[in-house]
């Protein structure tokens, strides 16, 4: 049966993790349809149509969907759901907000943050901050699933010549008037987005201050890396909340993860232990981070980081 992927987007394009969700969806059913709802989201619909494996794009133009309010979007997804065996979303802040509301309205359970599709009704998902893996089976008629993007390879994007999926315009359900969007305070950064960066440099409490993150910024810029942090660094106000890597923050799986001044609480490890290569820089040789690191250096990060920045080639 067909699978519906609900795509988050910025009107110009769908988020990059939609390509990962499409791959996961393709393992659950045959035809993958992508829902792109918003106001003036035609370009985003085109970007979804260009993703390999997408059979159809449903584009909905309705001002009510401009800001991703779950109260307004959920009824739209619920109306479409009976035509599909699965409703799939990436487990990001949009998917985590919307998908459970959809599931409850459908009176079905939710499979949260699946990391593997065993069969169309069976999934593997991490529990206890990834310290255990549960294999769960759903008997519900429609399966509402959020998927962890880093565990599914991104479906190829269509080039200029690739055949695009058909885009079908459908009507919206209007707004419910329960909630309204006021504004956003988004972090501005030229660096790669944390969850899709090939290299991530993260700082912890050991950085000592927000100002000291400058030495990590210099290293990140030299490597073309994204910048992350542990919960301790975010709670201390060194960096904004969207830098947080961990159980309840972002989950990253880059080729290279450099943990600087991070002790390695299990909650932090939950967000980065799928990284291909992990480097730990910490003055405490007993720090748990060294138990998961491929390469560790014990020493003063304020000496080591600038030295490392000087030693690596500019990307």
């Amino acid at each position: 049966m067909a699978v519906l992927v609900v795509a988050a987007h910025d009107n110009k394009a769908v988020r990059t993790n939609v390509a990962n969700a499409v791959t996961a969806a393709g393992q659950m059913g045959s035809d993958v349809a992508v829902l792109v709802a918003g106001k003036d989201c035609g370009e985003a619909a085109k970007s979804a149509a260009a993703i390999a494996g997408v059979a159809k794009v449903l584009q909905v133009e309705d001002a009510a969907y401009a800001n991703w309010l779950a109260e307004d979007l959920a009824p739209l997804v619920v109306k479409l759901a009976p035509n599909y065996s699965h409703v799939v979303m990436a487990a990001d802040s949009v998917g985590k907000n919307l998908a459970p509301r959809v599931a409850a309205l459908l009176d079905v359970g939710q499979i949260s943050e699946a990391i593997q599709v065993v069969s169309p009704d069976t999934f593997v998902r991490p529990i206890y901050a990834g310290n255990a893996m549960a294999t769960v089976q759903s008997a519900d008629k429609v399966k509402v699933v959020t998927v962890r993007p880093t565990n599914f390879k991104a479906a190829a994007g269509g080039g200029q010549d690739s055949a695009s999926a058909a885009i079908e315009q459908i009507g919206g359900e209007g707004g419910k008037g329960l909630s309204s969007y006021v504004g956003a305070e988004l972090s501005k950064s030229e660096r790669p987005e944390l969850t899709s960066a090939k290299i991530v440099v993260s700082g912890g409490r050991g950085m000592g201050s927000g100002d000291n993150f400058k030495i990590l910024e210099a290293l990140a810029d030299k490597l073309g890396a994204g910048l992350g942090a542990s919960r301790a660094a975010v709670d201390a106000g060194y960096v904004p909340n969207d830098y947080q890597v961990g159980q309840t923050g972002k989950v990253v799986a880059p080729d290279l993860y450099i943990a600087v001044g991070i002790s390695g609480a299990i909650q932090h490890l939950a967000g980065m232990k799928d990284s291909k290569t992990i480097v730990a820089i910490n003055k405490d040789e007993e720090a748990p981070i060294f138990q998961v690191a491929d390469y560790g250096i014990v020493g003063d990060l304020f000496q080591i980081v600038p030295e490392l920045t000087a030693a690596v080639d500019k990307k």
């Binding site: 310290n131 893996m133 294999t135 769960v136 089976q137 060294f290 491929d294 560790g296």
Partner: peptide, 21 residues
Amino acid sequence: PRLKVLKVEEPPKRKAGVKVK
């Protein structure tokens, strides 16, 4: 329950690597 838990397993362990000087 709507989800049947078929099994719960340990995640693959990551081995500690080496310390460099």
